[in-house]
């Protein structure tokens, strides 16, 4: 199934850094995303859109994961010529990952 079936997300930006946080609807699914939604899985979905390092932070009390992506926004909201310079749509791309 798609991650979207069990989780929701939001992406934000600071300069060239994008963060995409993901939370499960059912806390019982938290272990599953910890195991399956690895940095490698997110890299597979976001390369080469995201060029820099991707770091994952676990948020066990919130049943969520936060992915911090460097060099992700082609210069950031004020510099990028992308259609979506904030990377607001990144939250939808992560939910397309198969789990």
């Amino acid at each position: 199934m798609k991650l979207r079936d069990i989780a929701y997300s939001r992406s934000g930006d600071k300069g060239e850094v994008s963060n995409v946080c993901v939370f499960v609807y059912d806390p019982a699914d938290y272990r599953r995303i910890v195991e399956e939604l690895t940095v490698e899985a997110v890299e597979a979905a976001f390369r080469p859109l995201v060029k820099g390092e991707i770091v994952r932070y676990e948020m066990p009390t919130l049943h969520g994961l936060n992915f911090v992506m460097q060099d992700a926004l082609a210069g950031g909201v004020s510099m990028s010529l992308r259609v979506d310079p904030h990377g607001k749509s990144f939250q939808s791309l992560v939910l397309d990952i198969e789990v």
């Binding site: 929701y8 939001r10 934000g12 930006d13 600071k14 963060n19 946080c21 969520g64």
Partner: peptide, 16 residues
């Protein structure tokens, strides 16, 4: 709970 969590994670790098 969900609207609050998504805002908690918004534009955060290391949550700690």
């Amino acid at each position: 709970e969900a609207t609050v969590k998504t805002q908690l994670g918004y534009e955060v790098n290391d949550p700690a």
